[in-house]
């Protein structure tokens, strides 16, 4: 069986409410913190990254990959998953509005490649993403990710 992305998710929130893109990133950051992946400082670093480099983290229609670089605020590294009840504008010309925010923290540039490969597989699967976008519980998200990993075996 291929790597199950659910195993890398330190937190899953579905149909959450965010008033703007900063709020949406804060939810993803809180998920990393609650899972022990990062300290709260990393959440600010993810917001700073967008302020510095623009909303390029919206890498595909409706999907934002919130992240910053390896730093002391990264404890173990990990991923968090947030789907939004109401889509939020990040200011990305091609891919707004955002309905799924994935928080990513890595301890270095190489440790998370297996996770990234699994993530790339999930994000490029349109029908699966539609199910993940509309999922209303973390169990439902885990179930879809588990099916994908089994199918990719």
């Amino acid at each position: 069986m291929a790597f199950n992305l659910a195993e890398a998710l330190s937190s899953i929130q579905t149909q959450a409410d965010a008033s703007d893109w900063r709020d949406a990133i804060r939810l993803a950051g809180a998920g990393l913190v609650s899972g022990g992946a990062t300290t709260a400082a990393y959440t600010d670093e993810m917001i700073d990254a967008v302020e510095k480099h623009g909303p390029y983290i919206v890498i595909a229609p409706g999907i934002a990959l919130a992240h910053s670089r390896p730093s002391p605020a990264v404890l173990t590294g990990g991923l968090s998953w947030v789907s939004l009840a109401t889509p939020v504008e990040f200011g990305n010309k091609a891919n707004d509005p955002v309905t799924v925010v994935i928080g990513l923290a890595a301890v270095d540039h190489d440790a998370h490649l297996q996770v990234m490969r699994a993530l790339a597989g999930v994000l490029s699967d349109g029908p699966a993403m539609e199910r993940l976008r509309t999922a209303t519980s973390s169990d439902e998200v885990r179930a879809v990710l588990g099916e994908l990993a089994a199918a990719a075996a």
Partner: peptide, 16 residues
């Protein structure tokens, strides 16, 4: 290329 070198550029590299 991405801002941080750990997220989007890694995904872009894999797909490229």
């Amino acid at each position: 290329v991405c801002g941080m070198g750990i997220g989007t550029s890694v995904l872009l590299k894999m797909n490229a």
